[in-house]
Amino acid sequence: MTRDFFRHARRRWYLYLVLLGIWTLAYIRVFFDATPRLPILFNVSGSLPYTMAIVNYRAQGIHRGDFVIYAFEGPAQAVFPGLHHQPFFKIVRGVAGDKVTVLGRRVYVNGEEVGLAKTHTSVKHIPLDPIADIVIPPSYFYVQGTGVDSFDSRYRINGLVPARAILGVVIPLF
């Protein structure tokens, strides 16, 4: 019986190689960003120019410039209920103590412009207000994607991301 299995495995090695690859990717927690690069409503899950990354779920401390994956929460859940279980992949642009200011619709963190807040969503035309001026409190982060349609901390409805919502720090591969 065992001999038959090994004979079968030797002949069909390519099938077992695929299974081994899938198991390995699951074991090392590889994250795939399969978000289309053309935005539909918002480029919600991804909005960063990477398609594969390793997620460190046990990261100690989050710093400005880190890529993070976090669970969506906040007042926007009422408007976009389907996003509740959607993980977001963004870059940390502001940490506790940083000052967020808004002039018109231009958003700044510590005086550096980080983006322009749109007036409404692209498809459903839901009005969007920019985040209010604030000093980021402890255990909160200002996160942002690189796309103009990224749904991130530029908008009051999404706001700052609490540390409890961050699932891990992401190490982009490509």
Rank of each mutant, 00 (worst) to 15 (best):
P39Q: 12
Y16A: 05
G65H: 07
T146H: 09
V44M: 11
L20E: 03
F42A: 09
A163F: 10
F67A: 12
W23P: 01
L160D: 06
M1K: 12
V170P: 00
V170M: 03
F72C: 06
F80V: 07
H120P: 00
F88Q: 14
V109P: 03
V109R: 08
A78Q: 13
T119H: 07
L83V: 09
F32E: 07
P49W: 02
H8K: 14
R29H: 15
G46W: 05
F5G: 06
G168W: 04
H63N: 11
P39N: 11
V109I: 12
I171F: 12
P162I: 00
V143S: 06
V55M: 04
T35L: 01
V68A: 00
A76V: 11
L17S: 14
S150Y: 10
D133Y: 02
I62P: 00
F31H: 14
L38P: 00
R37F: 12
A9Q: 08
F32H: 08
D98I: 02
V109G: 03
I136W: 05
G159M: 05
Y14W: 15
R93M: 09
T146P: 00
T24F: 15
V68T: 05
G94M: 02
V95G: 02
P127D: 03
A71P: 10
G94A: 03
D66T: 09
G104A: 07
V143K: 03
Y14G: 11
A26F: 12
S139E: 13
